[in-house]
Design a binder for these strands. Structure first.
Length: 353
RNA sequence: GGCCCGUUCGUCUAGGGGUUAGGACAGGAGAUUUUCAUUCUUCAAACACGGGUUCGAUUCCCGUACGGGCUACCA
């Protein structure tokens, strides 16, 4: 495996990217540039139901505006690993899902939505796992003939990972240290959905491997599923080249509970989006920093300091200075409440000069 | 509920076994300014709690509390 730093920003085009996403992109960009690596844009559009027209272009426009452009990826020409849009890579995932099936690390499951609901009704804390999969209609419980029959009749099915009942999964997070989770706490996650598309988990792991990603830098909301990803690398035979993980603290609402969301802008009266966005369905307009008169350098500087700091008392940093000063070690562990007053101050500093 | 992550001024954070616990934003007071803004001076403001370990814990360990995340054929 090459030791070159390669990181990716992998949003799903379900709406406009908010500033939390921009910060994730920024940290990936800074890490790549700092280490002479590549910064890749990958579009994770595996959920066909949640696609929002224009969202992908919004991501590209945003990265362009703030000046952190990928050197490889969707919207940036054909790189060595094109295509970079997951819906265009569908066949790859099925191939790997089948590899897992062959190796006995995955199985077909024919349970309908109603079946699953019933299992949940019977068992308060139901999860599809080593203890309960014998209750399901899957290739582990059904006869080989029955499975073949269902498959040939094109019955809807999913492919699930087959996790052991009781095994510690351990991985090192570059920001948080060692994290250990037992498989008894995990479930047999769906890898390939009945519409033929992979879930995030499968697509993400396959693409990171194929695209030779060296570091996965993403939000903390992914921390709980990282053990599943580790298991996938292992079962796919890629554990030696598994990327390093770094889970970023979340951007929180200014007034209290929960992570910053798209609605907080309207509610609290400040933009949560880099660029103005018009909802294609409702025509509702959400304000953007650009249109509000913010300078891209100021937005970048402000975002950089939400969860990271250089360890000195300097606060005004150009993009080049950020690249020079950036390191994963200086990322704060706790979530950061977004502070609009500070954002205004950063912008004022840039406007003055 | 279960699992995972976290916890220093109101906010973003620095620091780290012995410090006057530092900076910035916001806030108070004052100066400069025709006004606003700017600028300057200055004040107030924090180690969640309880046990350890230690000569000494804000710093290390364990609990508790609180906060956050995840718990979908969503990412």
């Amino acid at each position: 495996m090459s030791t070159k730093v390669r990181v990716r920003f992998a949003p799903s085009p379900t709406g406009p990217l908010h500033i939390g996403g921009v910060r994730t992109a920024l940290y990936n960009y800074l890490f790549a540039k700092k280490n002479g690596g590549d910064f890749i844009l990958r579009i994770e559009d595996t959920d066909q139901n949640r696609l929002v027209p224009g969202a992908e272009q919004y991501v590209i426009d945003t990265l362009k505006w703030v000046g952190i452009e990928p050197n490889e990826g969707t919207g940036y020409g054909d790189g060595p690993h094109a295509p970079y849009r997951q819906s265009d890579r569908k066949d790859t995932y099925r191939q790997y899902a089948e590899q897992l099936l062959q190796a006995g690390f995955a199985y077909y499951a024919f349970d309908t939505e109603a079946d699953l609901e019933q299992m949940k009704a019977t068992n308060a804390n139901f999860k599809y796992d080593a203890n309960t999969r014998e209750l399901g209609k899957n290739s582990l419980t059904l006869s080989k003939e029955e499975v073949e029959k269902r498959l040939s009749e094109k019955e809807h099915y999913v492919i699930r990972i087959k996790l052991p009942a009781d095994e510690d999964v351990k991985f090192y997070d570059e920001i948080r240290g060692w994290v250990i989770v037992n498989t008894s706490q995990m479930d047999d996650k769906v890898l390939l959905k009945s519409d033929g598309m992979p879930t995030y988990h499968l697509a993400n792991v396959c693409d990171d491997y194929v695209m030779q990603i060296s570091h996965v830098i993403r939000g903390e909301e992914w921390l709980p599923s990282a053990p599943l990803h580790v298991m996938l690398y292992r079962y796919l035979g890629w554990e030696k080249s598994m990327p390093k993980f770094a889970h970023l603290p979340l951007l929180l609402k200014p007034d209290g509970n929960g992570k910053l969301s798209k609605r907080d802008g309207d509610r609290l009266g400040f933009p949560v989006f880099p660029l103005e966005w018009t909802d294609p369905k409702t025509n509702e307009i959400s304000s953007g920093y650009k249109q509000k008169g913010y300078l891209p350098e100021a937005v970048l500087n402000m975002l950089a300091f939400l969860g990271w700091n250089p360890g000195t008392e300097q606060e005004i940093f150009s993009k080049e200075e950020l690249i020079e000063a950036f390191s994963l070690e200086n990322i704060h562990k706790a979530g950061a409440k977004f502070d609009f007053e500070k954002a205004k101050w950063f912008n004022a500093e840039y406007i003055k000069n």
